[in-house]
Computed example of a mutant assay.
Amino acid sequence: MTNEEVMRAFRSLLDDGDLTCTVSDALGRTGALSADFRPVWPGARLIGEAVTVRTFGTDLSAVFDGIQAAVPGSVLIIDSHGIRNAAFWGERTTRMAQARGLAGTVIDGACRDVVAISRLQYPVFSTAITPNAGLPGGRGSVNQTVQAGGIPVQPQDLVIADENGVVVIPQALASEILQRVHAALDDERKAFVLAAQGASVPPSNPRE
């Protein structure tokens, strides 16, 4: 399958709910960013290839560079080195990202303007919320390997997020993981039938 076909297949599963859980299972119960990542508004979900951003201190210049570099359907992954006292995302960046067709944003750091973002229904997952804004200074980088929630993320890795959190699939494994996800969903449907009959059905090893 082409990358586009794999992406389309994953996207078709997103609205069924809890896709991140099945993907994590397919990755050997790994792949999830830290539990600190939460959706800014209830029900937010996203899927897309990563455009990575590494900020410098509280300088958010690279965030704007990342938005400009992103193609429609991309997910911006912002590595702010865990800084939580300055926001790297808000209403202005949200409106820019929507205009360029981005699928959402994941921030290892803080967000602000959450009422506006909720109203705009743009998916944002962050580890903190603060009214303090970062300042532009012309530093940072785009589309290099970053760290987000303890997981290395490379440009074009597949990012999926829902109410359970955020998972990252290495781009080279996306097709294989899709096959495992379909197999896991089939097994789960069978297990649910047995569970409804009162049977105890422990989960199988996703790598087998």
Rank of each mutant, 00 (worst) to 15 (best):
133 A>G: 14
123 P>E: 01
121 Q>C: 04
98 Q>D: 00
113 D>N: 15
134 G>W: 12
96 M>R: 02
134 G>P: 15
135 L>K: 13
114 V>W: 06
125 F>A: 07
126 S>T: 13
110 A>M: 05
138 G>H: 15
109 G>Q: 05
131 P>N: 11
101 G>V: 09
135 L>M: 14
121 Q>H: 13
96 M>V: 01
99 A>L: 06
105 T>Y: 00
114 V>E: 10
107 I>V: 06
94 T>V: 10
120 L>C: 11
115 V>L: 09
110 A>T: 06
106 V>E: 00
104 G>M: 08
125 F>M: 05
135 L>Q: 14
114 V>Y: 07
98 Q>H: 02
129 I>T: 15
110 A>H: 04
100 R>Q: 09
110 A>Y: 01
119 R>S: 13
115 V>H: 12
131 P>L: 08
103 A>C: 04
119 R>F: 10
100 R>T: 07
97 A>R: 02
134 G>S: 11
121 Q>P: 10
108 D>I: 03
119 R>W: 06
118 S>T: 15
110 A>D: 05
132 N>G: 11
99 A>K: 07
118 S>P: 12
137 G>S: 15
100 R>S: 07
118 S>V: 08
95 R>N: 08
101 G>W: 03
113 D>P: 14
114 V>M: 08
118 S>I: 07
119 R>N: 11
109 G>N: 04
130 T>S: 04
113 D>Y: 11
121 Q>D: 08
137 G>Q: 14
102 L>T: 01
133 A>M: 12
108 D>K: 03
135 L>Y: 14
103 A>W: 00
133 A>S: 14
126 S>P: 12
133 A>I: 13
129 I>E: 13
131 P>Y: 09
111 C>W: 01
116 A>Q: 13
136 P>V: 13
96 M>F: 07
111 C>P: 11
122 Y>Q: 05
105 T>F: 02
130 T>M: 05
96 M>L: 14
108 D>S: 04
132 N>P: 08
115 V>A: 13
99 A>P: 10
121 Q>V: 04
116 A>Y: 09
127 T>Y: 09
134 G>A: 11
